[in-house]
């Protein structure tokens, strides 16, 4: 890819992905989180499309279509419905000290790039930048799951982590076999539904989606 226009666009989208990952870290509103997640999906689909176009791998078009359908439309819609049903639309949570979290995030980005450097040297197709960003997105989503206290943001963190992996698979290494991608997509979808069902159960049990209540479940 290198300096071609498509390569640059992929780089730009990668940066956008990272920006969205940081925005998610610093976002307090649940609804805005869902919107950010949809944006991330859109950027992912666009980058997949670009890679498909520039490398001529046709199966990546399907991946892109899958990403749009699943990550921009279906899952956000499901999450929206969940939020409506559970009536947590105005939930504002106070994650621990956002600037500190973001500082940790920056450290993670540097770490991710340090990791990506030797890997990208082994292969000719992998660019250090995109692989590093994909790795960083995974780590940042993990961080987000750790610092959140409510269940829905945690699930969004989980889904965003999958986005990072997806980006690594398409943009950095030009795609996995379609079957694998279909399988992963299905898994994520099923996961989302299972989470949805769990939410209702958690709510019935504790009257809240605050996962601190789960601490009571341990045996003393």
């Amino acid at each position: 890819m290198g300096t071609s226009l498509a390569g640059q666009m992929v780089n730009l989208l990668a940066a956008f992905l990272l920006l969205v990952a940081f925005a998610m870290l610093s976002q307090r509103r649940v609804l805005s989180l869902v919107r950010l997640f949809a944006w991330q999906g859109a950027a992912l689909a666009a980058s997949t499309l670009l890679v498909a176009y520039s490398t001529g791998q046709n199966h990546l078009y399907y991946s892109a279509a899958l990403a749009v359908a699943l990550k921009v439309i279906l899952i956000p819609w499901v999450l929206h419905r969940l939020i409506d049903r559970l009536d947590v639309r105005w939930d504002i949570e106070t994650p621990i000290n956002i600037p500190t979290t973001m500082l940790v995030g920056i450290a993670l980005v540097i770490f991710a790039f340090a990791l990506a450097t030797p890997i990208s040297e082994m292969s000719s197709t992998i660019t250090r930048g995109t692989l590093g960003i994909a790795l960083a997105c995974v780590l940042l989503s993990f961080l987000m799951m750790i610092v959140r206290r409510k269940a829905i943001p945690q699930v969004i963190g989980f889904l965003a982590m999958e986005n990072g992996l997806f980006f690594a698979a398409t943009s950095a290494t030009h795609g996995m076999p379609l079957v694998v991608e279909l399988g992963v997509a299905l898994d994520v979808l099923v996961g989302t539904f299972i989470f949805g069902i769990f939410f209702f159960h958690i709510r019935e049990q504790f009257d809240s989606l605050d996962i601190r209540h789960m601490e009571k479940l341990k045996e003393d």
Binding site: G2, N11, A14, I98, L103, G105, I106, I133
Partner: peptide
């Protein structure tokens, strides 16, 4: 306001980082 601005600060720092990191 400090949160808003520290986000701006960290974004700017991140911008600097991405410049170095995306430079192939």
């Amino acid at each position: 306001a400090p949160e808003f601005l520290s986000t701006a600060f960290l974004l700017a720092v991140l911008g600097m980082l991405t410049h170095f990191l995306l430079r192939t």
